[in-house]
Design a binder for these strands. Sequence first.
DNA 1: TGACGCTTTAC
DNA 2: TAAAGCGTC
Length: 437
Amino acid sequence: MAAPQIIWFRQDLRLRDQAALLAAAAAGPVLPLFVLDESRIVRAAGGASRWWLHHSLAALDASLRALGGGLLLLRGPAAELIPKLVADTGADAVHAIRLSEPWWPLIEREIPRLQLHEGNSLVPAGLLRTKAGDRFRVFTPFWRAMQGWGPPPRPLPAPARLTFAPLPAGDRLVDWSLLPRAPDWSGGFSGWQPGEAGAQRRLADFLDKAGDYGERRNYPGEEATSRLSPHLHFGEISPADAWHAVEPQKGSAPWLRQLAWRDFALETLEQYPKSASRPHRPEFAHMPWTDVSSGEGRALLRAWQRGRTGYPLVDAGMRQLWASGWMHNRVRMVAASFLVKHLMIDWREGERWFWDTLLDADLANNAMGWQWVTGSGVDSAPYYRIFSPEGQAEKFDAQAYIRHWVPEFGRSDYPAPLVEHRLARERALAAHAALKG
DNA sequence: TGACGCTTTAC
DNA sequence: TAAAGCGTC
């Protein structure tokens, strides 16, 4: 029998538009593999993401079983397990889709016969260049260059049949304990369907509405967004696939532009890997952030996390996040701005909370979003941009959204505001001004 | 309310 | 190659 071709699934848990899978299948019998790597160099998935991962892996395994095979599950350092698997099986190659998180190259250099394929972005990161030949650091010129480059490749069909190599013994998914037990807080996740079929269903639901996205996307009470973010993070649908489905819709340009932000976040992360863990602009290292290790600062952070700041739009968003694993993007900006500007808490505290609670938690997007709000990023909002939570609620008709997530708003048991908006605003502006002085 | 990346223009 | 202007965040 021909030597096995390992297809190493990572954040590309799909059969459609899966270049690594197709390359493997063209070369020989495939050995589908997923490794749960929680070693020190990797940023392990947060709580909500682990729930998603469990169901997504179950769905992928079921799809592979339907084709007569299955998914090999291994837990441990990929840099050790995969070389051993290659040796044990005599595999001819390890196929994977290239990713942008900074730990992957460290792992990949240990893996023999690795073949990387594109497919996690619309345009391969690093390909587009300025006229001077540099990589882009600002979104708008990057977006213009993307448009000049043309559409991404047409999605490749899922293989109709596959020849599988014998599957070595591996782990059972249930033994990974990715799902919450006592207490099971995943009840609010029931609106989601992890896996490739769920991703395609979301996409189909969105197509009718894609033309209204530009006008309605900022209204948190409306179902105007695609909600594809967790599916895109886990690669259950490729960005190119989503692009080609949405692009023919009239008025789809604003959504395509937002999809391009995902590419831009990957481009930024590859250029500045440390921007995921520290402010890009060095002066922000000297910001007098609130001490959250104990006392009042800790209580402020906790109030923000649990949606008890006394600002109803912030609280509605934080409760939506806690309950459902997702928050409307407009509200993400307001809630994040509140943490950083009003409470003057280091954005990394917020980033860590989002990482743990978001089903779509993604290193590149999360870090870029937080740095953008803070004003500390490569390409970010001006420091004096301080959202007024009440002004934003008014502007984007958030009353129904607030009533839904904060039913006690207006009653006596709703908390008083943690800080007064005008005072907080003045304090944040003064702190930023002092940074420059 | 400023800062700055990128392109264009001028040399 | 440097400076200026544009446009975005």
